[in-house]
Design a binder for these strands. Structure first.
Lengths: 203, 203
DNA sequence: TGTACATCAGTGAACGCGCGTTCACTGATGTAC
DNA sequence: TGTACATCAGTGAACGCGCGTTCACTGATGTAC
């Protein structure tokens, strides 16, 4: 049983918002599913279901913010990888290995990233905005490689990043379908990515 | 309203099984969602919910067979592409274009392929078996290219196929996140794949 | 040729469940006088 | 310093819904005699 939560102090009501999101992360890390619900998240946070409405307009808003948080975390772990010194190519490799590790160690969180249905054309959608933190990191690394005189696979850093992320995500998705197969472990996929990168950055 | 279906003749009860699966396909083609339910499928087939149990042990069995059918169709469309004559490389390109077209024109069906959660380790799972029809087609085409003296990207046709399918699936998944963006249309993705293939098959 | 019966394909009602959302509320905490 | 009051964070009960699954059943169709 989840312990009943102590209510926030006056003026600190907004804290519940982030507590709800981290509760969602705990659920995702614990179970191999993408099927989150508002009630599950509220329960995990130790709060009654209606309390969610003080911080999110509806269940879709909640889910969107959870996905956004997943992308933000992924981008951050990719960023952490790049802080260490090294050439552009090494930096890119570290970045993508961080990406693969995130995806393989937290499969449910990763699957959330791509589970979002594109919304109605009528209402404003900013899936690109949600994805950008991670995409930009790869594009910038490729740009650095090109500016240092290296070869990148594509006309510009944008299309090169699209290719690189396609192959990395595609490989991860296939690995997730059959995680028990040899080669589909985290190190297996990392090795695959390193090898492909080597091939793609060859002049 | 779905018309109430005429019951099958005696001895033809098994027909309902395939009718249920094609009903599921109709739902997927009509709506941009992967959230199928047993009751939705039964209703679309013009049948009461309990009737499903004569042909599938439970909802999971039904869903598994629906996914299997999606893979089978995909493999078939890829096969149709290869019947025409041409070099191995042309055949592979046509095959992958068929793959891309299937994914872009029937996004919900395509998303089903990857929405299956890997099942409990305890029970037998044959996701690889489900995927194989499509995977083998690509591997065989690559094998033919190599046997004809061409270069393939990887030590053997299996790892080359893994690379090729990774990049194709990855690109499609990214396109599906933002289908309204230029370049994420079916022809845009087909062009991307053709370009990448050209690069990967270069000696 | 007629009729009783077995089989088969499928139904209708019901179950308990979790879902998103609403509403009026509670009770602690700070503020004004 | 004491007290009335407003605000704030969150609750409990209820709603209607669709879900998967069960059960006893119905009614058409073929078969045996």
């Amino acid at each position: 049983m989840i312990a009943r939560r102590k209510r926030n102090q006056r003026g600190q009501g907004a804290l519940l918002r982030s507590e709800l999101i981290t509760a969602a992360m705990r659920i995702l890390d614990r179970s191999p599913t993408t099927a989150l619900s508002l009630r599950m998240v509220a329960k995990e946070a130790g709060v009654a279901a209606p309390s969610v409405y003080a911080h999110f307009t509806d269940v879709r808003d909640l889910m969107t913010e959870i996905v956004r948080e997943c992308w933000r975390q992924l981008a951050q772990e990719m960023g952490d990888g790049i802080i260490a010194e090294g050439t552009g190519r090494e930096a890119l490799t570290r970045q993508l290995c961080a990406y693969v590790r995130y995806a393989m160690e937290r499969p449910s969180r990763y699957q959330m990233l791509f589970a979002m249905q594109p919304m109605d054309k009528a209402e404003p959608h900013d899936i690109p905005g949600i994805i950008q933190p991670a995409f930009r990191k790869v594009r910038d690394a490729l740009r650095a490689i090109r500016d240092a005189g290296g070869t990148i696979p594509g006309e510009n850093s944008f299309s090169a990043a699209l290719l690189v992320l396609s192959v990395v995500h595609g490989r991860i998705a296939l690995a997730h379908l059959a995680p028990w197969r040899e080669g589909n472990s985290a190190p297996g996929v990392e090795a695959f990515v390193a090898e492909v990168l080597e091939r793609l950055l060859r002049p």
